Amino acid sequence: MKNIKIGNGELSASQISLGCMRIAKLSTAQASTLINTALDQGINIFDHADIYGGGKSEEIFAEAVGMNSNVREKLILQTKCGIRQGFFDFSKEHIISSVDASLKRLNTEYIDILLLHRPDTLMEPEEVAEVFDTLHNRGKVKYFGVSNQNPMQIELLNKYLNQKILINQLQLSITNTGMIDSGLNVNMKIDPSIDRDGSILEYCRLKDITIQAWSPFQYGFFEGAFLDNPKFPELNATINKIAETKGVTNSAIAVAWILRHPAKIQTIVGTTNNQRLKDICKASQVELSRQEWYEIYRAAGNQLP
């Protein structure tokens, strides 16, 4: 597994992260097997959120790894907060209570990375800056990031923060390429030219913010996977053809397509299938040519100007 530098380069992590949203459905033994499979494949970063399984995912993770100081040193733990039932909450009180609860569930004294989960339009950036300082100074959180935020939202935060935003978690897959489409269709009066995200891809590259791609196999918001889906015959035929030439599975090609981008995007995969995880991790060793990358992009129904 190849590693990438996160943000400004102080932290190095595997290209692929294991998303832990679904492990709440696993037994402790099953979760232990999955996590050890990830570690054996070179994955060292694990993505959590306080809402995953209502907190149960974090609890099972800690039990499954047998969390102690020796184990903790091998892991990069990332969690998120800010989503509540029916609203978003970036208040000082909620962030602190959420972090304290995650620390207890994960049985650890610190979180490596804390992300603000979805934007909160009622956010007071000065208040967020204060709580980030508190968490950092108390040794509870080392690094900070956001999820699904546009450039101006990040700029607003960074105006006040002493701990700058190092990560932005965004939806990206072969069939969800809005941040790429607008950059390819500049000066065109067509739908793909519409910049819905404020040039977030280029912004993150300029500001040394690592993009973490979530739902790399999904089409739409949560409509299902595009792999082996009869709705996408040309795309699957193209992916399968390239997968055969590379000696890997279609899921590895789907992830390799994201990793090929020079933005050095980290991909979060949420599978709980051990063999599929092994197959996906082979993406780190797959080199797609420029021609292959664009062939897959076009097969998803995208037209080049």
Results as ranks from 00 to 15, higher is better:
110 Y>H: 12
126 E>G: 07
68 N>E: 12
75 L>A: 06
114 L>I: 04
71 V>G: 01
87 F>N: 11
105 R>D: 10
76 I>S: 06
115 L>K: 11
121 T>V: 14
87 F>R: 14
85 Q>H: 08
85 Q>W: 03
96 I>C: 01
118 R>T: 08
72 R>A: 14
91 S>A: 05
92 K>P: 00
123 M>V: 15
57 S>Y: 12
90 F>N: 05
58 E>D: 07
129 A>T: 08
69 S>N: 14
111 I>K: 08
98 S>D: 12
62 A>F: 10
59 E>Y: 01
78 Q>A: 15
111 I>A: 09
109 E>I: 01
86 G>Q: 03
75 L>P: 03
122 L>T: 10
78 Q>G: 12
82 G>N: 05
60 I>W: 06
121 T>Q: 07
83 I>C: 03
93 E>D: 14
55 G>K: 14
56 K>M: 09
86 G>L: 03
116 L>V: 07
126 E>Y: 04
61 F>M: 12
82 G>I: 03
115 L>Y: 09
79 T>V: 11
92 K>H: 15
104 K>Q: 12
96 I>K: 13
125 P>R: 13
54 G>F: 00
115 L>S: 00
85 Q>C: 03
98 S>A: 15
58 E>V: 11
71 V>M: 15
63 E>W: 14
119 P>V: 06
77 L>M: 07
105 R>V: 11
76 I>L: 15
108 T>S: 13
111 I>Y: 05
65 V>F: 10
124 E>K: 13
93 E>H: 08
58 E>G: 03
72 R>Q: 14
88 F>E: 10
109 E>V: 00
106 L>W: 05
119 P>G: 11
103 L>C: 02
103 L>N: 03
110 Y>L: 00
97 S>K: 06
86 G>Y: 02
122 L>K: 13
53 G>T: 03
98 S>Q: 03
84 R>V: 11
106 L>F: 04
55 G>W: 13
105 R>H: 07
59 E>G: 00
112 D>K: 01
52 Y>I: 05
118 R>F: 10
115 L>G: 00
94 H>L: 01
53 G>W: 00
61 F>Y: 15
120 D>H: 07
60 I>C: 08
70 N>G: 11
78 Q>F: 12
64 A>V: 11
89 D>K: 15
63 E>I: 14
118 R>I: 05
100 D>Q: 14
126 E>K: 15
112 D>A: 09
54 G>I: 02
126 E>W: 03
93 E>V: 12
75 L>D: 12
129 A>H: 08
64 A>E: 10
116 L>P: 02
87 F>Q: 05
80 K>P: 10
114 L>R: 03
79 T>G: 09
92 K>M: 07
128 V>W: 13
109 E>L: 00
87 F>G: 02
128 V>G: 02
55 G>D: 05
95 I>Q: 04
88 F>M: 11
125 P>E: 04
127 E>N: 05
63 E>K: 15
107 N>L: 05
70 N>M: 11
125 P>K: 13
60 I>E: 12
77 L>S: 01
114 L>S: 05
60 I>Y: 08
96 I>H: 04
72 R>H: 13
123 M>A: 09
82 G>K: 06
66 G>N: 06
81 C>M: 14
120 D>S: 07
61 F>R: 10
114 L>V: 05
82 G>D: 02
99 V>L: 03
57 S>K: 12
56 K>L: 14
94 H>T: 01
99 V>Q: 02
122 L>I: 01
129 A>E: 07
92 K>F: 15
74 K>V: 08
